[in-house]
Design a protein around this nucleic acid. Structure first.
Lengths: 191, 191
DNA sequence: GCCGAAATTTGACACAAGTCAAATAACTAT
DNA sequence: ATAGTTATTTGACTTGTGTCAAATTTCGGC
């Protein structure tokens, strides 16, 4: 597990049990079937979606083409931050890639608890920090790596992605055409 | 001004005056001359740098090449988030592009105040949220726009950048070679 | 105002990756 | 098993952008 995520979890576990209970009173579990949408453009994202079981992705459409920005697995949190914090309609889709179980963390209940306990506010802040750093690193990958390098990097960091997801989905995550990804893969198998 | 930044400022102005004073007791002003480094790789980033006057940039080196990730002007906050939150050595430079005046917001003093007042913690969280959304948008630009479109987009959003900064700096911000940027500009002037 | 250095522009060429099209392979459902 | 659909691979060609080199412009110091 990422060390910062570990730190967030540890802090969360060390919360006063009453605070913790109050926080979790706004949690609700839900299941989605493969291909279902957890969020669609136009909707306002009013919750964090904590993945319990399965996989999901976030993507947007640009000139008919789907661009996948995030892949989610166990313990990841799916949210359209832009829509969530600005309380405006989302411009992204969040979709189940497999049968999916999530914990829904409702905005307003969570907000109340955050305002009441500085430790909960800090937990939330740490989550955003993690998200920001993650995005910064991802941008760096796009600025410094070519398609093959990005593929290899993904392969190292998330080997399960390569087995689990279609070439089309991976290509859209790496932001290359599926033909190019196919060529990259055949070259690697050969080499 | 960006509406979310405005919201942050408004909240900041509405803070209890005592809290505000306590927060600002950890602020200190400092001047840098053009070209000076506010942060260098290896150093731990222990403060937020609020720009009062002038311009600065953040960049990192990759294969000898400088890649500028952020440009800062009045009221922007410069920080290596990665180094700041993980308390680890930075891998970026923050450099004055002009004569520069900044307010230095020291980590430990700010941390104390944040832990004490949930509103200050929230302010800090909102700043990070803004940062995360900004990065997300920037990534989107790289995923959906070619070099000319990125240049035009920058031109619209930050016209002063184009006058103030060298082709070399702008090129490194747009992540194109300076030759390519030069060709883009001549094409636009002609068109 | 003039010189040298630095920044910018222009040219020629190379290469990564996109597009369109066709072929093949892998599933799905009957 | 078989037909039909969908996903993946392969081929041919185009294009945006990088690199290296040379020419030109701009700028700072005397």
């Amino acid at each position: 597990m990422n060390p910062y995520i570990k730190r967030i979890k540890d802090l969360s576990n060390r919360l006063n049990p009453e605070v913790r209970a109050e926080m979790e009173s706004g949690f609700a579990d839900k299941k989605f079937s493969k291909g279902a949408y957890l969020l669609q453009p136009g909707q306002i994202c009013t919750s964090h979606l904590l993945i319990k079981e399965g996989a999901a992705r976030k993507f947007y459409k640009h000139n008919e083409k789907e661009i996948t920005t995030e892949l989610y697995f166990h313990d990841d949190v799916a949210v359209s931050l832009d829509s969530y914090i600005m309380r405006k309609p989302a411009d992204v889709y969040i979709q189940a890639l497999t049968e999916l179980e999530v914990t829904i963390i409702d905005y307003s209940q969570f907000y109340k608890v955050k305002k009441k306990y500085v430790d909960v506010m800090m937990l939330d802040k740490m989550f955003i920090e993690y998200y920001a750093v993650w995005f910064e690193q991802k941008l760096k990958e796009f600025q410094t790596m070519d398609a093959s390098q990005r593929y290899l990097s993904l392969f190292e960091k998330e080997p399960k992605v390569i087995q689990l997801l279609s070439v089309t989905t991976i290509a859209s995550y790496l932001n290359v055409s599926l033909e190019t990804l196919s060529r990259i893969r055949s070259k690697i198998v050969a080499g």
